[in-house]
Amino acid sequence: MGYSIPDNLKYAKSHEWVKVDGNIVTVGITDYAQHELDSIQFVEFPGIGEEIEAGEVLGAVEAVKAAEDLICPVSGKVVEINEVLEEEGSAIHKDPYGAGWLVKLECDPSLLVKELKEHMNATQYKDFIEKES
């Protein structure tokens, strides 16, 4: 299926993407994930400054029919959230890798390197969703 999967990102099995920029990591949900969720209404975010470990719940995406937990792909401190999405979630459908980003985390560089190894690159993620769907 023609899902967009940019090469420069890392992907979690729970369908979050991760973009690394120094020690700042941007997290969002993938094109595949936004297709699976019908009409995202809004996103429930963690508080700024909250420390969240990889694997913990980072927030929730509320779609018309279901709520899905966001799983934190890497450990870090929340430094920014995409406030627009607190009110209205359609940006995730329109631009899941751009305007639909969710959270920025400040990470410990050495831990980050280790945690990123747990995630998939674009090719691996493509195979992964083909198997899943």
């Binding site: 099995k13 729970s14 369908h15 949900i29 937990d69 966001l70 799983i71």
Partner: peptide, 8 residues
């Protein structure tokens, strides 16, 4: 998101 790992 859709975590479906089977744990103990």
């Amino acid at each position: 998101m859709f975590s479906d790992t089977i744990n103990k």
